[in-house]
Design a protein around this nucleic acid. Structure first.
Lengths: 323, 323
DNA sequence: CCTTGCCGTGAAACGCGTTCCATAGATTAA
DNA sequence: TTAATCTATGGAACGCGTTTCACGGCAAGG
């Protein structure tokens, strides 16, 4: 493997000059520049990026921590990160943690070990304080709302409220909700929105937890079927869950939305094919913003960027469109 | 930032000994080992991975080239790679190329520049020969069949044939197919399977190309509607396209499968919610295999690993299940 | 004519962990 | 008892690009 010292010898210049040519530094005479370029051609030189990384102390790489890469919601954020990273000449490393804390620590350590210049945390189970201890090693940007950290987020409180109010405007008073991991930041905000919005009508047995997948949705549907007092509408925290509920109930001969109105969350392809009413979230935008904060200096101010959501009409909340 | 020389000074040993402690080398006396560990604690030393990479000439990182990260099919492969990478203590970098050749070159250059130890190519538009020129810099594993390269693949010919034969066994003789990028390796194999399997009934106007997304599926449906001679069944190359066709036709008042039988491809969530008959592909398995080949020495023999597919019954090819 | 200041160039240090090689005492095999 | 190993340890080179600093030359400002 030829290196810049070989080039310097070949071109009869110093390594400094070679480095200048490589980095387009202006203070190089034309003849020397050409001599170096000729040497590069002749010896087939290829720059060793690892050496650059060590020398500059930067890897031009951002790490992404997320529980699963194959959930459409995460994939869409990755998409945004990927786009932005490419444009900026950055790379990104993805770590799938499955919400295992030791795995999350591995990721944080990678920042400390300077494997990456910064970290984007899509979702996590470690406490924010614990994570923020690593901020001394580089920027950490959350894709969730955290008041004392850089965060790009959607307001799950108002987003959920949007869904609930839509159901109320369709004269539903008996409304249930589905949540994912019950103690996650997002779930807490959603639960709060539920309690505040339906207030007197809020019922603990109408809060279905641990609902993340299509199968979980089917479980929810069966739980609903077994209840003596059933809500007439359910707002879910993901299109997958909404899909599971709808499929299971249709299977059992129930009609959507006549027997149960359902609203999804995400605005995924599933919502398109099932014509779900859903709270659409621009995940790609979240990824883009998170990335650009991670590579700028602005992260030090812990900027808060709220990304708006929109209610997208389908036919699962009401045959008539929700206005 | 403290480094191993600081540690050596603090612990009154040589840097070599420090390095040995860090790497669990046996030839270190217990007292020295403890002295070093104490120094690590005291000075808060954190290993600089970049220096390790430069020194060892390995990055413990594999690059993944794919056109889009948010397609479920690619996300599932990534999932497999992510799992395997984590288990092996490797990292992976994802590059989204959008099938742009210059972007693909960027990825290949990264291998040459030793940013990654190897490359997994999920899908590409550059020629295989061009890509293989970079094999001198490290392993390159394809997730498609290429006889002269390491590849982990599903046999698109037999997989497609499976779908076609299922339709034939349902007494369809007028069968159309949807393809993605018409000249991709996969499409060529599929086209061949089509021509061989339906032979006399193959019709160029029943080969719908450039069909990749749900919307593309809707286009196909409209094209089908406008044809005077229509196939009675369509085998698609992705569940998205199948979904698009079905939704558009249902919208127009047609019935699936009575008016048109449809079979998808991938075995994605869409297939689940629409109860699609589909050719299920274990993408995660592909990712796992590709990764383990990339980090072993076996790639040099250009191993060929075929991953089997299965036909999954739904209700879009026949009300009765396909046997 | 002298002082700034910019241009062009190179030696050497730097970032930092790994590893080859030499050294020396302690064992074990012969 | 001697030769051959094994254990333990350190110096120094290595991987390789970047950057600081110093220096000579030359043009513009005063």
């Amino acid at each position: 493997m030829t290196n810049i010292r070989d080039l310097a010898r070949e071109a009869h210049v110093s390594v400094t000059t070679v480095s200048r040519v490589l980095n387009d530094h202006p203070y190089v005479a034309d003849d020397k520049r050409q001599a170096v370029q000729a040497a590069i051609q002749k010896l087939g030189y290829i720059r060793n990026q690892t050496a650059v990384h060590l020398s500059t102390g930067q890897t031009h790489t951002i790490g992404v921590m997320l529980p699963f890469v194959d959930h459409p919601y995460h994939a869409a954020i990755l998409q945004g990160i990927a786009r932005c990273a490419f444009e900026e000449g950055y790379r990104f490393l993805t770590w799938q943690t499955n919400y295992v804390e030791s795995h999350e620590h591995t990721v944080l350590k990678a920042l400390a070990q300077r494997e990456v210049d910064g970290l984007i945390i899509v979702s996590h189970s470690l406490s924010v304080d614990e994570i923020l201890q690593y901020e001394q090693y580089g920027p950490i940007v959350f894709c969730e709302y955290h008041p004392h950290a850089s965060s790009v987020y959607i307001n799950h409180y108002t987003a959920f409220q949007k869904g609930l109010k839509a159901l109320q405007s369709l004269h539903h008073t008996e409304i249930g909700i589905c949540l994912g991991r019950p103690d996650s930041t997002n779930s807490l905000a959603r639960k709060q929105a539920y309690q505040d919005t339906v207030s007197d009508d809020a019922r603990p047995e109408w809060i279905y937890e641990q609902a993340l997948t299509i199968e979980d949705g089917a479980h929810v549907a069966r739980a609903w079927l077994n209840q003596s007092q059933r809500p007439t509408a359910i707002l879910t925290a993901s299109d997958h869950v909404a899909a599971g509920i709808i499929l299971e109930l249709r299977e059992q001969g129930y009609r959507i939305p006549e027997d149960l109105a359902v609203i999804g969350f995400d605005g995924s392809d599933l919502a398109v094919v099932l014509n779900l009413t859903t709270v659409a979230v621009p995940y790609e935008t979240i990824g883009r913003h998170a990335f650009s904060i991670a590579i700028s200096d602005s992260w030090q101010q812990h900027p808060q960027t709220e990304i708006p959501t929109t209610l997208k009409n389908g036919t699962t909340a009401s045959i008539l469109c929700v206005k």
